[in-house]
């Protein structure tokens, strides 16, 4: 059974080949680093001083994550999850997939696993992009030296892990919606509504109850991490289990 599950994941990974969702990962990963690089090249005045700061890499990392966490990451998740489900709807392939000899749980889990792999791929490429966006100005501009501080890989890994865990409720909720509704606009609209609601409610002292807010809260450092991780994992578990039950008990699997 374990081998079958691995094969199931492999097939889902093959399916994403040449899809818009797979391009979205690459574009999403390098969009912010490219903008950051261009801004730095266009306004190099303060760079020499900033590059020699004690916490250059930490500041550079947070700066890059700012646009990512508030807009690009949730938007990317909403689109990628929707597109992955839409691939089956558009090609009428659910019925063929559901007549393959594998438990329904494998189909549900393997699709979700591939979405998480894609997110990890995004985070790795984004981290490479962040490093490159710091290195390129130092290469191009004579006045700018390479950062004195070594790249704090442990910090990058820890922060990325937080953003990953804080994004899980978004992935799970969008996945639930994308499997329930054939119309791509429903999960897209619901996801955008959740994003807007997060922004509108962000000043509320109990914003931490809202499942799409954890990445932004972490970025702003408004609450301690541990309760946020617990809230995030709670929402994730709820959405993930509810999504599976709705998927499993669907009357028509075509």
């Amino acid at each position: 059974m374990a081998a079958l599950f691995v094969h199931s994941i492999q097939t889902e990974w093959i399916k994403r080949k040449r899809t818009l969702a797979s391009w979205l990962v690459i574009i999403g990963a390098f969009f912010t680093p490219v903008i950051v690089t261009l801004v730095q090249l266009a306004r190099p005045e303060k760079l020499p001083e900033r590059y020699q700061a004690a916490e250059f890499w930490e500041n550079h990392f947070r700066n890059a994550w700012q646009s990512m966490v508030s807009l690009l990451l949730p938007m990317g998740i909403i689109l990628a999850v929707g597109l992955m489900a839409q691939m089956e709807n558009r090609n009428s392939t659910w019925k063929q997939l559901h007549t393959t000899p594998q438990p329904l749980a494998f189909i549900y889990l393997s699709k979700f696993t591939v979405l998480l792999f894609m997110e990890v791929q995004l985070f790795l490429l984004f981290t490479v992009g962040i490093v490159l966006s710091a290195v390129v100005p130092a290469f191009v501009l004579e006045a700018v030296d390479f950062p004195a501080q070594p790249i704090p890989l442990a910090f990058f890994a820890r922060e990325s892990a937080y953003y990953f865990f804080f994004s899980l409720p978004i992935v799970a909720f969008q996945y639930l919606l994308a499997l329930q509704f054939r119309n791509f606009l429903i999960p897209l609209g619901a996801g955008m509504l959740m994003m807007v609601t997060t922004i509108v409610l962000f000043s509320w002292e109990r914003i931490y109850v809202f499942p799409y807010s954890y990445g932004m809260i972490h970025l702003m450092g408004r609450f301690p991490e541990q309760p946020l991780v617990a809230w995030s994992m709670g929402w994730f578990t709820l959405f993930f289990v509810a999504g599976y039950l709705l998927y499993y008990y669907r009357k028509d699997r075509t």
Binding site: T11, K17, T19, N91, K95, Q96, T100, T254
Partner: peptide, 25 residues
Amino acid sequence: TLIESPSLYAHLTARENLLLYQKLY
């Protein structure tokens, strides 16, 4: 099975489409 209309991944080749099912079966 072949139920109603063709169930194919339009962005994959014929061989890639079969590869998916070869792994699952």
